[in-house]
């Protein structure tokens, strides 16, 4: 797996783990986590595209 995508996925997991303790700021943890999921997906697609080329 693309190392960068794995790193972003790890960051997303950290953000989602913070949600239960985030109280009024849970939306921040969820939003940042979702951004990292998108970045992981984009990075994986980018790496896959480069491998094909």
């Amino acid at each position: 797996m693309d190392r960068r995508a794995a790193f972003f996925l790890g960051a997303a997991v950290v953000c989602f783990l913070l949600v239960p303790v985030s109280d009024g700021y849970a939306w921040v943890s969820i939003t940042v986590g979702a951004v990292y999921v998108v970045l992981a997906l984009g990075s994986w697609l980018d790496a896959r595209g480069h491998r094909r080329v």
Binding site: A11, V14, V21, G24, Y25, S29, Y36
Partner: peptide, 15 residues
């Protein structure tokens, strides 16, 4: 609140 943003602020900055 402070503890959560200790972790989140570098991650937000990175993104």
């Amino acid at each position: 609140k402070i503890g959560i943003f200790i972790v989140l602020s570098p991650l937000i900055g990175l993104a």
